[in-house]
Design a binder for these strands. Structure first.
Lengths: 351, 351
DNA sequence: CTGTTAGCGCCTTCAA
DNA sequence: TTGAAGGCGCTAACAG
């Protein structure tokens, strides 16, 4: 029924082993022979059986990319970049990897489940993107699973996520969320703001914590630390609606705010909507800042001040690391800086 | 070295077949036996070998979701919804499918390549999302490939893409782009607009053509057809920058435009940026409309009038169809309507 | 309900 | 440079 490698061999009048060798191109084969085999492949419309070859070779051409939210361009950009660095060209049969993205939806269970599924498939590599959950149990489970996969020959790359203890991971590309958060708030302080609200992400995520720590560090350095800051911080999820609601709450709590820093650009957009609804103008009445510099941020009205993360570059690099095309950074960890990007949504407070 | 099913069998003092049966849960096994097996699995930290089981069973648990641009929420939302309908819960070993998204980047070659890769893996199902390229060669190649996969037992679902000839496809969920486009422009005409610019998507895509046809149909019905419309149409890609540039060109060509219809919301945002840059106010000077109703559209300033597509629902449905959980629509094709969503970016033209 | 027996289709030494 | 042979780990009849 289905065409097998043996059929191709028969038609090309060679042994199955030879067909295998030309298909994998990792062994010397006479040009004329290869020619005949390739012709037979075309004529028979043969398609390699992935599972069979993965079983025999004890490795597959699957590369998994885990993301927290596939509908969020933050992840889409990284994943797309990684995928293009891996999936590569129009290439022939050989060497093609199947780069594939898996959406955990931010759920730790799904994260582990996907890893197990990928492990089952004997994936060639795994790229885990975005902030990690800070639950000790989950962290341990992840570390264990990644270590096991790594031992089994799967390359493990972290992208936009802090390193995990132990050296089971091939490479880590971490964003300097703390530094970015600090510089952003320093900018606001420099403009003269003193009552700054903070709309944070989910409490138990590394990204959330690091950005918030940077913010607090800047405040503390300006002598604005202390419990007061708790009151000016509201947590929510990384989406627009959360930013909207959190901002309303913040305004109720402290109507005299002159600036709001959001966990990311999407949240910042929600914050803007809330401010507008309260009749407050941006940046005249309240300044707003985001994080990430997603494509829409430059088009927001007013254009959003934010911290630009090189998501595309990071994704490409993660893809190369997963392919083994690029050498891991010294120590296995590279920290990627974000650039403070000043636009119209921030200005000096009134009077 | 690695733990195999035989090891588990030995430890549980049963035959390999029995272990297989409890793992797949598709066969009666005594509760006490299952208990012992499961315990052995845990103790040995056993992980099923995917390729081996796929080889033996001649089918895998992979489900591929093809998207044109993973960084575009249009696709992210559909893919995420489909994935959640498939990947499902925290579930045990059994019945888990690996839903996986593949980014073609709009390239026909990559589309075919991914399909081949998925075919190699003996994927359980494939969901192809978004507009199709209208090149006859590519269309034929796609139809052939999908037919082959379908014959091999892979379920094929089209989501947001018009049906392909032949009935190799399990089910098609097509968006009524033509109807949506028509209703949108009818709305503008009703408001009194007569000089309406159109920023279209890439010329050779079904989505682009259908939306444009709807637009033209509405104009024709109002006696506004003809070659003049060619002049008021500019093609570009489905991104923000394209909308920005196309709008500038449109304004140069016809400064007296009172409305601009964009191929989708992202493009509409670019159009808004261009108008603002030219000192034109929305909707006072020029009305703007989009398509899709992506999450950010309600937050744009002014909020965007658009055609709302139920992307999430469509994705969920596609996921169910791919799982065989939901019966295909009669005739295999369901057409999904878009709702005209009126917001602040459109108004009657001045004077 | 459970064990036995054959492969699934390919890769990979080992010889020639 | 090519062929022959064994086995990768699991599932699916078929008995019992």
């Amino acid at each position: 029924m289905t065409v097998t490698l043996a059929d191709v061999a028969a038609r090309a009048r060679v042994s199955p082993a030879t067909v295998s060798r030309v298909l994998n191109g990792n062994y010397p084969v006479a040009a004329s022979t290869r020619e005949r085999v390739l012709r037979a492949v075309d004529e028979l419309d043969y398609v390699l059986n992935g599972p069979a070859s993965a079983l025999a070779a004890a490795t597959s051409d699957l590369v998994g990319i885990l993301v927290n939210d596939i509908a969020d361009p933050f992840f889409g950009i990284m994943a797309g970049a990684a995928q293009s660095a891996i999936g590569s060209g129009t290439g022939r049969a050989g060497g093609e990897k199947l780069a594939v993205v898996c959406n955990t939806g931010g759920s730790p269970e799904r994260e582990l489940t996907y890893l197990t599924l990928l492990q089952r498939q004997r994936a060639a590599a795994v790229i885990v993107t975005g902030g990690a959950l800070e639950d000790p149990r989950h962290t341990a489970a992840m570390a264990a699973k990644l270590a096991k996969m790594s031992d089994a020959g799967t390359r493990v790359v972290l992208c936009g996520r802090p390193p995990v203890p132990g050296d089971s991971v091939t490479a880590t590309l971490a964003f300097d969320n703390r530094g970015g958060g600090r510089r952003l708030t320093e900018h606001l302080l420099r403009l003269g703001h003193r009552r700054i609200g903070y709309v944070a992400g989910p409490a138990e995520r590394t990204t959330t914590r690091h950005r918030l720590e940077g913010h607090r560090a800047a405040l503390a350095a300006a002598g604005l630390g202390g419990p007061e800051q708790e009151r000016l911080t509201v947590h929510g999820s990384y989406d627009r609606r959360s930013g909207y609601e959190a901002t309303l709450r913040l305004l109720d709590r402290e109507p005299s705010l002159t600036a709001i820093v959001a966990a990311n650009d999407t949240v910042a957009l929600g914050a803007c909507a809330a401010l507008r609804e309260r009749g407050l103008r941006i940046p005249d009445d309240v300044s707003v800042a985001g994080f990430d510099d997603l494509p829409f941020s430059v088009d927001a009205v007013p254009a959003l001040t934010t911290v630009r993360l090189p998501l595309h570059d990071a994704g490409v690099r993660a893809g190369r690391l997963a392919m083994g095309t690029e050498a891991p950074p010294p120590g296995g960890v590279a920290t990627i800086r974000g650039d403070l990007t000043l636009r119209a949504s921030t200005a000096a407070p009134r009077q």
